[in-house]
């Protein structure tokens, strides 16, 4: 009856920004990124990648409500960095990791398929 449409889970409504950054009003170098139409898949890998950065003092994400299709990633950095820098770097690193993984899979598949032909 009043259930939200299923596509609302992954289609960003028109006029809404996918990612918005809001600086913390009290703490320097802290703020939260609100990411629309994403969930634990993105939230958790981002958080863990941010933890690898020693300039990041705090990184966490939350899914505020199961019917609000957004996540909030909160980042606090040391003053050598900024949350936006750390965030961008985390995405770059994850992207490169996946690029690498894809290549690794292709190579591994070739190796796997070559194996029986060699004949022990």
């Amino acid at each position: 009856m009043n259930a939200p449409d299923r596509y609302e889970r992954f289609v960003v409504p028109e006029g809404t920004k996918k990612v918005s950054y809001e600086r913390d009003t009290k703490i320097v170098n802290a703020g939260s990124f609100t990411i629309e139409r994403e969930d634990h898949t993105i939230g958790n890998i981002l958080r863990m990648q941010l933890h690898r950065d020693p300039n990041v003092l705090f990184a966490g994400y939350k899914l505020p409500h199961p019917l609000q299709y957004k996540i909030i990633v909160r980042v606090h950095t040391a003053n050598q960095s900024t949350p936006t820098q750390a965030y961008t770097q985390a995405i770059n690193d994850l992207d490169k990791e996946l690029e690498n993984l894809k290549q690794a899979f292709e190579d591994e598949k070739n190796r796997y398929e070559e194996r029986p032909k060699q004949g022990y």
């Binding site: 996918k18 990612v19 994403e38 898949t41 981002l46 900024t82 936006t84 965030y87 992207d95």
Partner: peptide, 28 residues
């Protein structure tokens, strides 16, 4: 892997918020 990369690409900061965010952070 491809889909996850596309998703990550989609959550990059757009140029306008990136500049604004960093400028603000530098000021403070």
């Amino acid at each position: 892997i491809t889909v996850l990369r596309q998703k990550l690409d989609g959550v990059r900061l757009q140029d306008d918020d990136g500049d604004l965010g960093e400028l603000g952070a530098h000021l403070v």
